[in-house]
Write a protein that binds this DNA or RNA. Structure first.
Lengths: 229, 229
DNA sequence: ATTCTTAGTGTTGATTTGACACTAAGTCAA
DNA sequence: TTGACTTAGTGTCAAATCAACACTAAGAAT
């Protein structure tokens, strides 16, 4: 036991709530634990923070290691420090939430990990530790954030239709939105670039594809703009 | 060195940004460091997390020990984990922000601590560690939160005038508000109880005193209400 | 050619917002 | 005791925003 300190120290971990958007549902990625405690239970991907990496770096590393995901949208959520949240010893966990374009990553999640899987947010099994609480908070945060920041694009492919975008908002916010009002508002923000492409292989009129103008968004966000939907 | 671990561990601390409302300014409490590193510098109150206390308990304990403040509004802000934020070793700090009724606590801060003092948020000295960054984030958060949650009452005495409340909003949001519109909106939320008292010892017409209806707020907040100002 | 499905598009009434100025009450000083 | 001073307290209107609402257009499938 080579690392000694004058006072006892909590272990420090990161946990990630990874959201992805299926055609039909908002999903989160879970991994099945291979060791005790909670062996066999599903849990959020995560692990110990190394001394030479920041918290966010730790979260990204664990995400890559355990789920193959990388270059995703990632933001700190909350830090969980209940004394007994881990039965072994004191563990404080900094939780992050991630938004991934499922369309890009579908393959990996399927091949990579026999112990990683996507679950619909309304169909999540019992989770290890206090991960249910973390998940709940992540959902609340995602909903809150979506209302006033154009964060939803992170869940869609680079090019998407307005209907997809609306569908995403409806899934996350759990209420129906009026198509015309939604389009009016979202186009009015002036952050979408109309491409000259339309969706392919659909059995009906094909919708126009749009891109999110991330540069413009960054500029305006820095200037303290508001993007309430 | 009695505490040994298989892998190296970061030290875990809490830091608190304590806001108080002077008649003229929004203030924060700082303490002057007595030891290196940054000896003599001003810093946010804070300290190490003990193993048998939650993060919030640690924050409250440190607050009480270092500044004499207790039973204040306290909420987690963000966790700071840059690798070099402390020159000695890896230290991860969970930051909280607190809102205190300066009117209640003025005495204590004056007597208690020769090394604790209030500074106007626009007149803060150079801070130790990354505390300037923490402060900035706390300010942003306070501003953001004030817009859609009736959190400002935590900075005022139990009974206050509408002008005081407006003044507080103006100080925090850093813009002037229209008196009539402000009163309309704030009374319209229906969270203020008109008392039968008026302010005392003022050299002009005395204003009515109001109380914040915390019970009602809690009920409505739980029901998912919105209190955008 | 007909049917089916989703894309795409404007108007209107209701509500909310923001700008704006005067009277009321009380203290103070001459 | 009166007049001056200071802050409390109050309503209207025009502009902007929001929410409700239904039809035509395009393309695929039969």
């Amino acid at each position: 036991m080579p690392y000694s300190y004058e006072y006892p120290r909590a272990a420090l971990t990161v946990d990630c709530v990874v959201f992805g958007l299926d055609d039909e549902e908002l999903k989160i990625m879970l991994i099945q634990r291979g060791q005790p405690p909670f062996e066999g239970s599903w849990a959020l991907p995560g692990g110990f923070v190394h001394l030479e990496e920041t918290l966010e770096e730790a979260a990204r590393r664990e995400l890559e290691e355990e789920t193959g995901l990388h270059k995703v949208f990632l933001e700190q959520l909350y830090t969980f420090g209940a004394v007994d949240r881990d039965p072994r010893e004191r563990v404080v966990s900094v939780a992050y939430y991630a938004l991934v374009k499922l369309s890009d990553h579908k393959v990996q999640a399927a091949t990579d990990a026999r112990d990683a899987a996507w679950f619909g947010v309304h169909d999540v099994p019992t989770l290890a530790f206090d991960h249910a609480e973390i998940l709940q908070m992540a959902l609340d945060r995602l909903r809150g954030k979506l209302r006033y920041q154009p964060i939803g694009f992170e869940l869609l492919p680079k090019k998407f239709t307005l209907s997809q975008l609306q569908h995403l908002y409806e899934l996350v916010l759990e209420r129906e939105l009026d198509k015309r009002n939604f389009r009016k508002k979202v186009l009015g923000m002036d952050l979408l670039i109309e491409t000259d492409e339309v969706e392919q292989d659909v059995a009906h009129r094909a919708a126009r594809l749009y891109r999110f103008d991330e540069r413009k968004y960054r500029r305006l966000a820095k200037a303290g703009f508001n993007f309430e939907l």
